[in-house]
Simulated assay, not measured.
Amino acid sequence: MREKDVQIQLVQGLSARSAANFVKTASSFSSDVKIGKNGQFVDAKSILGVMSMAFAKGEQITLRVDGSDEEAALDSLVSLLESNE
């Protein structure tokens, strides 16, 4: 299992469009992916779970990835969250 703290740099945070893109990316990997803050985690492959957390720009979040492609999944998701788009 890999875990990494990331600061969200997306202009709108994980709003509807960016959350959908994040979930699509997470779902492309076979690893189990969780995203959370303040000790509360949700399935990163669930649009409802991700949207329910209301992740905003500048927020510090934690990604937990466990599985055969965890390294690639973590790298892709961190890159996505740290982009300025």
Score class of each variant (00 low, 15 high):
D69F: 08
G13I: 02
S83C: 13
E71M: 07
I35K: 06
K4E: 13
S31A: 08
E70S: 06
D5K: 14
A19H: 04
K45Q: 12
S27M: 03
A16K: 08
E59T: 08
K45F: 12
G13M: 03
K24R: 11
K45M: 12
V11D: 15
I35L: 14
R17A: 08
Q60H: 12
S79K: 13
V65E: 06
F55R: 01
M1G: 07
R17N: 03
S76W: 07
Q9M: 06
Q60K: 12
N38L: 06
S31V: 00
A16C: 09
G13W: 03
G49I: 15
N21C: 10
F29V: 02
D43H: 03
S68D: 06
L63S: 03
Q40R: 14
A26W: 00
N84V: 12
N84K: 13
E82H: 06
Q60F: 09
G36I: 04
S76M: 15
A26M: 03
E3L: 01
F29Y: 14
Q60D: 09
K57Q: 14
S31N: 05
R64C: 02
V11S: 15
A16I: 15
M51Y: 00
R2K: 00
A26E: 04
S52Q: 08
M51L: 07
V23P: 11
V33C: 11
S79I: 02
G67T: 09
S76H: 15
G67A: 07
G67N: 12
Q12E: 10
Q60G: 09
I47V: 01
V50F: 01
A72R: 14
F41E: 13
L81M: 12
S76I: 15
S28A: 14
K37F: 03
S46W: 11
D32T: 14
S30R: 08
E82P: 04
G36L: 00
D66R: 11
I8R: 01
S31H: 05
V65Y: 05
F41V: 13
S30V: 11
R2I: 07
Q12H: 09
S15K: 14
N84S: 08
K24V: 00
Q9C: 10
S79W: 01
K34D: 14
M1T: 07
L63A: 05
A54D: 07
M53F: 04
D75V: 15
K57C: 04
V23D: 05
S76R: 15
E70K: 04
S18M: 04
L80Y: 12
S46A: 12
Q7C: 07
L48C: 02
T25R: 10
M51N: 06
D66W: 01
